[in-house]
Design a protein around this nucleic acid. Structure first.
Lengths: 193, 193, 193, 193
DNA sequence: AATGAATGAGCCTTCATTCAT
DNA sequence: AATGAATGAAGGCTCATTCAT
């Protein structure tokens, strides 16, 4: 019983199913069949909407990045001053939604997949640069240019590092503690301001 | 031209080929055929020596971890005092050998694979715990227990973060600069000692 | 030209192809490729419908056993008295359909395969017990319990023995003569009733 | 440490290993490697002595048939009169050695294999004919030619039938009971002589 | 006499993808 | 709009067999 206006719903369901499936079964285990079946549709429909598996993956990646960007933007809107705006970025990174195990695992899997997909790499680059320029822009108001660039590098690495460890290591600190560690990093680097 | 005593040579060649292949083609693209052919042998021989693809991967992972552990141990041997010993760990982490693009990529791929392989996860856990206990042990001589544990977490995350970014991001700082950033992290946290 | 409702047709074709192929090439020679190609489909489709080769084999075995059971049931329906019902079993066993060389050979091959497949063994056990209880039930009306059990054993063995010899020996008697030999066995054991 | 005069020992060990292995793992599961390893030698040596796997199997089959023939011959030597000589054949068939589960299973497996190996089929035919002519020869002294031929057929089938059922069915009667059933068959057919 | 080394051939199985309906 | 039907291509793995030592 085909209905009209189903397309956006199906696309969304498939994207969510992809993230969950990649998170749980890994990039290798996430077959089109499984993704489709999780979304409640046939594998053929997934191809109908996305063309290839790569494009399904790409769409899912884009979805994750957009959600993160939205999280940053929302928090930025109400933040006052560079310090609060830096905190907004950190907050968005360690938002409970973003830290859902499936999402973290999927993020990591996509991250790695990106090494072989130029398009995925481009996506990641765009996001990374935007994030970096955001950080540098705020940091520059608190420290010299060179320091700002340096701290931005460290900050991004620290965040990514916690992500990968959350995905793979057991015995990790609580989310709140992680956030505190990242915030500390900023404070330490800029001196007790 | 079959000779005797080939086994260790073949095993080694296959392990190296695995690391290179995983680094370049990813965990998915690294088929037994490609690995074997890179090692100059038939796929059947790879199975003859390792049994399954999983075990080939495991052996390669073990190889990477052992090499890293050796690097740490060697540097530790000549290091004097906790600060130098911490520096030894950082040094070993950013050794030029360890930072070879193929190795970094392979390390990352294995890291992710570990989410589905209990045995690989175990390997990683052992290595992570040893590293952590090493760090904590040194840090405890420079700061209170709680601080030591906290800094060790941040330190490990920072290192992992740089690794993943080295594998995936362009425009990364020079290795020396990265090492400086990590060293700074320790210094900042322990106060200018 | 894919049509709808193909599944039962394909399953059937594959099962028949399996029996023929196992009969002609043996259990070892009957590869999924050959079976599929005999059924006019790709090997992938065979897996699509049956999952594994084992399950294809199992389905084929079940088919043979069900056909035999049907033959018995049909003949039983119109048989009057225990002697006729015993004859019905013998008749069904040496029905021309059941005695088709491919079927006999397949039956034998499956019979042997069953030694390593618990599920196949279970299938065979069920069929053997049903057959035995059928025989004993009829024989008991013509002779004491102990005799009935004994003759049922001999009868089943005699039938199986002729089967295996039909599959493997040359210079076998005609089907009618075999049937007479089996019928004689009953008569001899129960006395000339 | 190669020794001289090892050949017959190795051949024998390999043949025995083949029978055991085929009995336990089936014709499919009995690989040259497993057979060789059970015999305590390398797979290469098995080929050195027998050339191909088929020839190893053939040798094992021949071994079983010869052992059976020896059993018959030995018992025949001391048997007096046709009835005792028929009993000798039955006795040899249900000798405890011949009924060892591995041997029965192997016998059956070879029996089936023979359908695809002309040489194995020839072996089997020779043995079957010799057995048949033995039986007929004795029976002819107790009954008319036609009866003798008929009973010989039934007798051989009954024996083969018990064999296959011993290999595959559970809940079989004791060996002694089986032997009695077979002996009864002869007596019933020849009248209470 | 015996084996470690090595491989070609082949099998089961999976999966992304296409197509007619 | 949606799917069942179907397959080509490829991958992991096994095994009989060969060969130099």
């Amino acid at each position: 019983m085909p209905k009209i206006g189903m397309e956006p719903l199906r696309r969304d369901a498939l994207i969510r199913a992809t993230i969950t499936e990649v998170g749980r079964s890994g990039a290798k285990g996430a077959t089109v069949s499984r993704i489709a079946s999780r979304a409640g549709v046939s594998p053929a429909l997934a191809h109908h909407y996305f063309g290839t598996k790569d494009r399904i993956f790409l769409a899912a990646m884009r979805h994750i990045l957009v959600e993160f960007a939205d999280g940053v933007r929302t928090r930025m809107a109400t933040a006052k001053g560079p310090k609060q705006r830096l905190a907004a970025i950190v907050d968005a990174s360690f938002d409970d939604d973003q830290l859902h195990p499936d999402t973290v695992a999927a993020w990591l899997a996509f991250y790695v997949e990106a090494q072989r997909s130029p398009e995925a790499a481009r996506l990641l680059r765009v996001y990374a640069r935007r994030l970096n320029s955001n950080m540098v822009h705020e940091l520059r108001q608190l420290a010299p240019e060179a320091t700002a660039r340096r701290v931005a590098q460290g900050l991004a690495s620290l965040i990514d590092g916690f992500y990968i460890r959350l995905a793979l290591q057991d015995r990790m600190p609580a989310h709140s503690e992680i956030k505190a560690l990242v915030t500390d990093y900023i404070a330490l680097n800029l001196g007790r301001i």
